[in-house]
């Protein structure tokens, strides 16, 4: 199936990608906000984010706000394209076309 993406299809990663895809282009969200939407532990979210980052689908930016470390996550153009292709592939499977 063209466009189907095993890396993205994993449940937590699929939700991460869908949530990030809903951000306006160029926007980034902080780790805490994303965690509250995905509802997983810090460690679990961190592990999935690393896999997506390694694939070039997301960009992780670490910074400091005052003295507090903060992590921002955004979808890359590649990630957006891969996610949209994956969603299109899912729709094709549902409609029964190959």
């Amino acid at each position: 199936m063209e466009g189907f993406n095993d890396l993205i299809h994993q449940q937590v990663r699929l939700r991460i990608m869908a949530a990030l895809n809903a951000l306006p282009p160029g926007a980034e969200v902080d780790f805490t906000t994303l965690r509250s939407i995905i509802e997983v532990t810090d460690g679990n979210l961190g592990a999935h984010l690393r896999k997506l980052e390694d694939a070039g689908y997301i960009k992780v930016r670490k910074t400091f706000v005052g003295r507090r470390p903060r992590t921002y996550i955004a979808l890359t153009p590649n990630g957006r394209a891969a996610f949209e292709e994956h969603i299109a592939a899912l729709k094709t499977i549902i409609s029964g076309e190959e």
Binding site: L20, N21, A22, V29, L90, I94
Partner: peptide, 18 residues
Amino acid sequence: AEEALTLAKEAAKQMRRA
């Protein structure tokens, strides 16, 4: 596939709502 699509839609909806 339908279940996966529902999960994705729900996550996107939650982000938009946020």
